Computed example of a mutant assay.
Amino acid sequence: MLLVPRGEGVETKLIKTSYSTTAGTAYITFDNVKVPVENRLGKEGKGLFVVLSNFNHERWIMCCGSIAGSRMIAEECFKWIHQRKAFGKPLVDLAVLRAKMANMFARIEALQAWLENITYQMCHMTYAEQADLLAGQIGLLKQQCTRVAGEVADDATQIFGGRGLTQSGMGIYIERFQRTQKFDALLGGAEEVLADLGVRQASRKMPKAVL
């Protein structure tokens, strides 16, 4: 793992994405770049471990952000169905929309409880214990967070109708969430990768007595 300073021989070109330029997505080229040996991070041949050492906390933070985003969208939907009227009645009078909100609330609260459970364990474990016992749990939580975020985005767009596609007014947050929530589903490991990690970690801890 090398820390390469921006300088002669290093060129970057912005890659536009559906998310935001703050993600720093870019095409980088190296042309005969020399890197001093003191810029090596970790031990030679062990660069992957530098990346892996941060994964648990990185994914935990992503879970926090994803759940918070889903909760904010649920709040926007709840306000909308009380304010918006159709055929002389507020949308909250429609049972189908109340059912959508109930499912949204239940999924978000379940994720919040799971997150707090894992957070409590992280606060009472050493870093080594976290890596050994919680990597799979955190991976599974992140996978579920982003899956639920996608469902919340779809439900919110249906609740808002055409307003959920506008980039202004009350629909602005719905449109932005629908367009950008997939970023979290890929960052820090795709959903399928994290689901597999969780199962493999569980298999590794399977008591031999039951095999």
Rank of each mutant, 00 (worst) to 15 (best):
A86F: 07
D93H: 06
K89L: 01
G169R: 10
S203M: 15
G65T: 03
G169V: 07
G47A: 00
E11K: 09
T22C: 08
S66A: 15
Y127L: 12
Q83I: 14
E44Q: 13
Q178R: 15
A149T: 05
C123Y: 08
N54T: 06
K13L: 10
T166S: 13
K142Q: 00
L41R: 02
I73G: 02
G47T: 00
Q201W: 03
Q130D: 08
H82D: 10
Q130K: 05
L41Q: 03
E191V: 08
Q130I: 02
A26C: 10
M1C: 14
M62F: 07
G139C: 01
A23K: 09
Q144L: 06
V50K: 02
E8H: 07
R59A: 01
L134M: 03
A68D: 05
M101S: 07
I73S: 04
D184T: 10
R71W: 07
L211H: 09
G198C: 00
G45W: 01
Q143K: 06
N117L: 09
E44I: 08
A95L: 11
W80C: 00
E58W: 10
L94D: 07
F160P: 03
T29V: 12
P90I: 04
V4E: 02
L115F: 05
G7N: 02
R40Q: 11
N32G: 07
E8L: 04
R84Q: 12
L14C: 10
P207D: 09
D93E: 14
I28L: 08
Y127G: 11
R98G: 14
S70I: 04
S18I: 07
T157C: 15
D31E: 08
L91H: 01
A95Q: 15
Q144N: 03
K142L: 01
I81P: 01
A74I: 11
Q181V: 11
A110P: 04
A185N: 04
G162T: 02
F49T: 12
T146R: 02
R200I: 04
Q112S: 13
L211I: 13
K100S: 15
K142T: 01
G24R: 01
R107L: 11
H124I: 09
E129H: 06
A95K: 13
H124W: 08
L14K: 15
A68N: 06
G9I: 11
Q178L: 13
E75V: 09
Y173P: 04
H82W: 11
F177H: 02
M1W: 07
K100Y: 14
H124Q: 06
V4S: 02
M206S: 10
K13Q: 10
K182V: 14
Q181M: 10
G198H: 00
N32H: 13
A195S: 03
I172R: 07
A153I: 08
R59S: 00
E8K: 05
T157G: 15
W114G: 04
S20Q: 05
A86P: 00
G189Q: 01
R84W: 04
E75L: 12
T119E: 12
K43D: 14
L194C: 01
I73M: 05
A106R: 12
I67T: 04
T146C: 03
V92S: 13
L197A: 03
V37S: 14
A110S: 11
P36I: 01
N54W: 03
A153N: 04
L211E: 11
T166H: 09
N32D: 09
C123T: 14
Q121W: 06
A68F: 05
A102G: 05
K16M: 11
